[in-house]
């Protein structure tokens, strides 16, 4: 997960209106059975009146969080949406209504389109591999007997890494001249690659840091999820003679479905919000080959001072994310209910 200013990255679910929706979104790790039990209990208690207690206290309990969410998520999001229909002169002066011009501007600017394309590519080459590697590592680490604490700790460490520090280290490892990776290739008789300086490899190289880190994070989630698979399941499958890949795809993964959803949504959000590594490793270059939606909206907002266009671009992203969220919910509820 990227280290972001807000916790927004750290989502796990699709939107829903009632607690009943939550069963598809139970996080990591709450076992399916127990979470549905809890839900059933919820519904039962939901019909019961809160006898002898005032409703004032619970409302007060919600107020601090409510203020935070209102001030730092909802209000900014609304302002951002509004701003995407205006030109906002930073030097002062009134806002001017421009309709969809900002959207038109960002969707016709080749640099922005390239950033959108890069974000798609980046997401494609980070999300699936980091989930697959994370799952594989969790299964491997889980199957280890002796040395398990060491293996687990080692594989968890990338998750804690400071991306600024690690981006610097990866920049050296992949340095064109004298970088470790090229030296290694040299020993293998392969010529040096200008990893970060060549438009063909720069995005991949930045993505490697992303995979390195989010594979570790996904692994943690899967690891926690695996711990919730009841021991009776393992015994039953053993008795039935189901094992290996079949067991994984037919038994373990379906049981861990909420965990898979959780890990997937987190991986998507951290991929579309990649910033630190790009900022430190390439600053979007060479030739815009590592510019992403976030670095592009940063550039539109804080370098070109075109707040309207920056807002429009952010909103397009939000629409896509909500779309993915709804789609995922539909697929899941189709399979689950």
């Amino acid at each position: 997960m990227t280290a972001l200013g807000t916790e927004n990255a750290n989502s796990s679910v699709t939107p829903g209106e009632s607690p009943a929706d939550m069963e598809i979104a139970a996080p990591a790790a709450v076992p399916v059975e127990s979470s549905t039990d809890a839900l059933r209990a919820d519904r039962a208690s939901g019909t019961r009146r809160e006898l002898g207690r005032s409703n004032l206290v619970p409302i007060l309990f919600l107020v601090p969080a409510g203020i935070g969410i209102l001030l730092f998520v909802l209000l900014p999001a609304v302002l951002s949406l509004v701003a995407s229909f205006f030109t906002v002169p930073l030097a002062g002066g009134p806002w001017t209504w421009v309709g969809l011009a900002n959207f038109e501007r960002v969707l016709t600017d080749p640099a922005v389109l390239k950033a959108i394309g890069n974000t798609l590519v980046y997401s494609a080459i980070t999300i699936v591999p980091s989930l697959a590697i994370g799952l594989a590592l969790a299964l491997l680490a889980n199957s280890v007997g002796r040395g398990r604490p060491f293996v687990r700790t080692a594989l968890f460490l990338p998750m804690t890494a400071n991306l600024v520090a690690m981006a610097v280290v990866f920049r050296w490892l992949f340095a064109f001249q004298g970088g470790f990776v090229n030296q290694l290739l040299g020993v293998a008789g392969i010529g040096a690659v200008n990893w970060l300086g060549d438009t063909n490899t720069s995005l991949l190289t930045v993505a490697l840091v992303g995979i390195w880190r989010s594979a570790s994070f996904s692994m943690m989630i899967f690891f926690a999820g695996l711990a919730t698979v009841p021991g009776t399941i393992h015994e039953a499958t053993k008795a039935e003679g189901i094992r290996g890949f079949t067991k994984l795809t037919r038994i373990t993964l379906p049981i861990m479905k909420p965990t898979v959803v959780f890990a997937t949504v987190l991986a998507i959000l951290s991929s579309v919000q990649v910033f630190d590594t790009v900022n430190v490793m390439t600053q979007g270059g060479p030739q815009g080959s590592t510019e992403t939606v976030l670095t592009m909206s940063w550039k539109l907002g804080f370098s070109y001072f075109d707040l309207g266009a920056a807002s429009a671009l952010s909103f397009l992203l939000l629409v896509v994310l909500v779309g993915i969220g709804l789609l995922q919910r539909r697929i899941l509820s189709g399979g689950h209910k």
């Binding site: 302002l79 906002v88 030097a91 002062g92 002066g93 009134p94």
Partner: peptide, 12 residues
């Protein structure tokens, strides 16, 4: 917002 904008619209 328009209110804010009007007040911030000083001579640059």
């Amino acid at each position: 917002l328009s209110g804010c904008a009007a007040s911030a619209g000083a001579d640059p």
